[in-house]
């Protein structure tokens, strides 16, 4: 078979919605795009542990503490599935970490914002995980098999995360005046960054067209963003809170909510490393990695020793 035949077979699979598997031939760019996207997604899970981890030791009740701890642990698990999925494309976890630590690989910019109150644990669950789910549900049918399967597992847990976040805010919104104030303050801070999670608008998203063709992506950034706005407005009303956008209103003709212009300058600033917590987040990850080097070395040395001993035992026998 020539490369052209391979390409044709690949295209046919894509068109017929047959999953691409690790051993299948795939175009180099498809592989590169997936590595970029899946590793970015994995890094987001791992870096995403930090802003919520920030409140584990200060959770206001034992039940909330246990739920938050379990939630952050889930994110670590998601990172694990995703790194494994990316590894099937021929990159190691260590290489991906290296790319994260040197700034070559990105992660979701939302995690570069600070968590300054307990209500942020609610807002992150509701808005950030809510926005993530919009993306991720679509990814359950992405064309690369291992990625799609990882996403199915992840989506189940994410919807639980979103509910627990919303429940935190619901409880607080039924509480005292100061608690309601805390909720509103948190929504004010997380709303716009959550909308930014869907990425640049379609006319500024260089990778979208090719990713749609490959069925890596199923919907455009703007489509998913609109869907998110439409469901979130209703949920916000139930909380008795306001979304911080004066232009937000129902558009009868479109059958959707209109909303204001995103501050793209802020978006690109944070993407390019100038957000409020970019430095801290990356430092925390790098520090964990560097401090863990001797531990990983020891584990490796010990497992080598064991192998050697097993070998000499077999010989002796």
């Amino acid at each position: 078979m020539t490369v052209r035949d391979f390409q044709q077979a690949f295209d046919e699979k894509i068109d017929r919605e047959i999953a691409i598997e690790p051993r299948d031939w795939m175009p180099d760019n498809y592989r590169k795009t997936l590595i970029r996207q899946i590793s970015q997604h994995a890094h987001s899970e791992i870096v995403g542990m930090l802003p919520e981890g920030n409140w584990i030791t200060r959770a206001p009740s034992l039940r909330r503490k246990a739920v938050l701890l379990a939630k952050v642990q889930d994110e670590a698990g998601h990172g694990l599935y995703l790194y494994s999925a990316a590894e099937t494309l021929g990159i190691t976890r260590d290489e991906m970490y290296e790319q994260l630590h040197t700034g070559k690989a990105k992660y979701s910019s939302i995690f570069n914002y600070p968590t300054t109150s307990w209500a942020d644990m609610g807002a992150i669950g509701w808005l950030v995980d809510g926005a993530a789910i919009m993306n991720q549900v679509a990814l359950c049918r992405t064309s690369y098999g291992p990625y799609a399967r990882a996403m199915v597992r992840i989506c189940k847990e994410e919807s639980f995360h979103q509910r627990q976040g919303y429940e935190i805010l619901l409880q607080m919104s039924k509480g005292t005046e100061i608690q309601r104030k805390m909720v509103q303050d948190s929504i004010n801070r997380w709303w716009w960054p959550s909308l930014m999670m869907f990425g640049p608008s379609d006319d500024n998203s260089p990778n979208t067209e090719q990713s749609m063709r490959w069925r890596v992506k199923r919907f455009t950034n703007d489509e998913l963003r609109q869907r998110f706005v439409d469901v979130t407005v209703e949920q916000c009303n139930i909380l008795g809170m306001k979304l911080p956008d004066p232009d937000l209103k129902w558009n009868e003709e479109r059958g959707h909510y209109d909303f204001g212009e995103i501050n793209w300058e802020e978006f690109w600033n944070v993407v390019n490393g100038n957000g409020p917590c970019n430095k801290e987040r990356l430092e925390a990850r790098t520090k964990a990695w560097e401090n863990g080097q001797w531990v990983r070395d020891a584990a490796l040395a010990y497992s080598e020793k064991r192998k050697q001993r097993a070998k000499s035992d077999t010989k002796a026998a």
Binding site: G53, L69, Q73, A76, G79
Partner: peptide
């Protein structure tokens, strides 16, 4: 629980969080 997100290996981060959750359950 202070280790959560800062462990030397991702698998161990998960293990420690699990253990922390066990103790929290016992405490409750």
């Amino acid at each position: 629980s202070e280790w959560c997100g800062h462990g030397p290996v991702l698998e161990q981060d998960i293990a420690l969080t699990n253990i922390s959750l066990d103790f929290l359950g016992q405490a409750r």
